[in-house]
Nucleic acid binder design. Structure first.
Lengths: 198, 198
DNA sequence: ATCGTTTTGGAGATACCGCTCCAATAGTTG
DNA sequence: CAACTATTGGAGCGGTATCTCCAAAACGAT
């Protein structure tokens, strides 16, 4: 019925993520993407209405992929098991998805969030809210009542594992194999310390 | 002897840091800086030879200010006191220097490290090495022998406090007053857990 | 084979950025 | 007051990025 599509959106997003690895969000220009993917300049605009839409897609694809597994990990019955699984997931997922992790090393603001179309902005807040709810639910199951206690849970299941990942990302060293164990143990140590405080 | 200087370098760097807060390193353009500081376009070039020099100065000023106090904090005699002080310093310093902290949320690469002049690159490696040495010395004093044990110390004195700071930076929420306590306690919990493992 | 429909490709308009250059400027000195 | 000198200011050049536009291309349907 018509000419078939020649360029896959996903392959463009992959190339864009690769550009983020090499030079951050600023390196993701429409022309650089076209060149990196071996696509004519104008063809990029047939997939993404503009640069802000492209950047939104790059971010959302990464964050949604991460959050899906992260929320799943916290669904385990025992709250300590859930916390341990969540901490491990951050490290393991990052090891398996270095390009997507490089994207998440920035913030939505760095990907021009202010210029995103409304639909993209909504996807972002929806995903973030769901994740926040999951963490808060876990905090409740762990007996956290005050804001400080809830934040301690966040430290355990997010700040610690992501801090490890981020440091290796920045220094260029590969994430060592013991990193997941380290993240889990450190997370549980913080949670155990919180339990003794009650 | 000659016309006196009219624009202070520090005030330009302050304006540049403010630009980083609002829009990341990409927003630090020579023209944007000139406009933000109320300085003519060309005058910026009388202070900084080019954009790469400017970005290098912005980064180095922030990181050196941070590292100075950080290394000092680890000089305490008792290694656990030193670790606690280091963890607290990260949070306290970030609370007191939000603009400089916003700069450190990125990496030297985001500030165009590859284009820095040699002198700036040397300043960076010198400061980083000194800091790394201090952390490694602390790890030794805490009895860490394996790489995994040393990294656990890094988790305690850097990843945990900085993770807390970074999360608040990203969400736009102010760092709560209990954050320093939370960082210290979490750090000591991780270190205590490490001690029981031996 | 021909038609209709959708995708493609790339040249070019517009805007912005880094950077240069040099006349004008404003203190300092004698 | 006049001469000297380092600093200043802004117009403008070259390069690059975003985005538009429409003829050409490539397939399915008839």
């Amino acid at each position: 019925m018509a000419r078939p599509v020649k360029y896959d959106t996903q392959q463009l997003l992959d190339a864009a993520a690769e550009l983020v690895v090499q030079g951050g969000p600023a390196a993701v220009t429409m022309s650089a993407l076209a060149q990196a993917a071996g696509v004519p300049n104008g063809s990029v605009y047939h997939r993404f209405a503009g640069r802000s839409v492209l950047l939104a897609e790059v971010w959302l694809r990464s964050v949604e992929a991460f959050q899906a597994g992260y929320v799943d990990a916290m669904a385990l019955e025992d709250p300590y098991d859930a916390a341990a699984a969540a901490a491990r997931h951050v490290v393991d997922w990052s090891r398996c998805n270095p390009e997507l992790t490089a994207v998440l090393a920035y913030s939505p603001a760095d990907f021009g969030r202010d210029d995103w179309p409304d639909a993209a902005a909504r996807r972002l807040t929806t995903g973030n809210r769901r994740t926040l709810r999951a963490v808060r639910a876990l905090a409740r199951r762990l007996g956290a009542t005050t804001p400080a206690a809830a934040e301690r849970v966040t430290v355990a299941v997010l700040d610690i594992p992501y801090g490890i990942v981020r440091r290796h990302l920045r220094t260029g060293t590969r994430i060592p194999s013991y990193a997941a164990d380290l993240a889990e143990r450190s997370a549980l140590a913080v949670l155990a310390d919180a339990a003794t405080a009650e």
